[in-house]
C-alpha cells in the first residue's frame, strides 16, 4: 500500500469518515469539513510519528501541512527525507 493510501485508511478508520479509503479524495479538505478536531490532531501527529519514525516539531503542525491527505503525505515525505539526512 502506498503511503497516501495508508494515511487515507487511517483517517477513514480512526475518524469514522463513513467512506471507503479509496473514495477519499486527495484534496478533500479535512480542516474545513471538521474531520480534524483538537484531539484528532494530537492523535494524528502521534500516529504519524510512530508509523513513519518521525519526531514532528510543533512548529510544523500548521494548516498547510494537514489540510488534505495529499498535504499530509507531502509533509511526511519531506520529514522522512530530513530525518534521513539529519
Amino acid at each position: 500500500m502506498s503511503r497516501i493510501d495508508a494515511i487515507k485508511r487511517h483517517l477513514v478508520e480512526e475518524y469514522e469518515l463513513g467512506t471507503a479509503p479509496a473514495e477519499l479524495a486527495d484534496d478533500y479538505d479535512l480542516l474545513r469539513n471538521g474531520v480534524i478536531d483538537s484531539l484528532a490532531l494530537l492523535t494524528l501527529v502521534s500516529w504519524l510519528e510512530n508509523e513513519y519514525a518521525l519526531d514532528i516539531d510543533a512548529a510544523d503542525v500548521v494548516p498547510d501541512n494537514f489540510r488534505t491527505a495529499a498535504s499530509i503525505d507531502a509533509f511526511v515525505a519531506a520529514a522522512v527525507t530530513t530525518a534521513k539526512v539529519g
Partner: peptide, 9 residues
C-alpha cells in the same frame, strides 16, 4: 486566523 480550519485555525 482561519475560522474554518478547526484546531489549526
Amino acid at each position: 486566523t482561519e475560522p474554518a480550519a478547526g484546531p489549526l485555525g
